[in-house]
């Protein structure tokens, strides 16, 4: 998605060097994708090996001075999540952003994820409703492909902030496929203001004054 799939990770004296996404080195990235010989190699690992790698990603990567570390996780409430929360605990993580789609089947799993956050003492920064409606590019009719409003309702029900909805946008998918910078290239897309609004809310809610 960030167009760095062919890059490799280098080893230096103080650890693994993350891959830089842009010239200014403002975004650095670490992923197991960089450690595979071939992009289609499957990582058929049980929990303990995954946990060991997550711990290495947090302790052995030369992250340097960062303002924010964003951790993308797989679905569920299992090894990866427990290990991430445990490894980050000494660094006092700001909290979790929960992403759902609007339909009840998806909301059902996020309810369990909220319980995970509560049990592990992880603050919930808020809930994002993704794939929320699709505006037909031909007639501008909006269809709620995966229903609507489920994320907001869940946030109210659980008493956590609702950060906003992101509509389905083929331009966003396309730009991720090609690893382009969506925010630079599609400022007029409907998903753009939605994403910008959510990012601003996360900044506000996690700034020292806000929290």
């Amino acid at each position: 998605m960030l167009k760095v799939q062919d890059k490799g990770v280098h080893q230096c004296d103080s650890g693994w060097v993350p891959v830089f996404v842009d010239q200014d080195k403002s975004i650095s990235l670490m992923s197991i994708g960089f450690l595979l010989e071939k992009p289609d190699d499957a990582v058929v690992w049980r929990g303990p090996k995954k946990n060991a790698l997550i711990k290495q990603f947090i302790s052995d990567v030369t992250w340097g001075d960062l303002d924010f570390l964003i951790v993308d996780t797989p679905p569920g409430t299992s090894d990866e999540h427990i290990s991430t929360v445990e490894s980050l605990r000494p660094y006092k993580p700001l909290g979790a952003v929960l992403v759902t789609t609007p339909q009840a089947v998806s909301i059902g799993d996020v309810r369990r994820e909220l319980t995970f956050c509560k049990k592990t003492g992880l603050r919930v920064i808020g809930i994002v409703e993704n794939m929320s409606g699709f505006v037909c590019p031909h007639c501008l009719e909006c269809t709620n492909l995966f229903s609507k409003g489920g994320g907001e309702e869940l946030a109210r029900h659980a008493g956590v902030p609702f950060l906003g909805c992101v509509p389905l946008d083929p331009q966003l998918t396309q730009s991720l496929e090609e690893g382009r910078d969506f925010i630079q290239e599609f400022p007029k897309s409907s998903a753009f203001p939605a994403l910008a609004h959510i990012a601003q809310q996360i900044l506000d809610r996690t700034s020292p004054q806000g929290s």
Binding site: C136, E141, E177
Partner: peptide, 18 residues
């Protein structure tokens, strides 16, 4: 693919770029 219920034109919401 998704066929808009109003104008019946198909859109690729998750485009098969490859």
């Amino acid at each position: 693919g998704f066929i808009c219920p109003k104008c019946k034109i198909e859109s690729q919401i998750f485009p098969p770029t490859t």
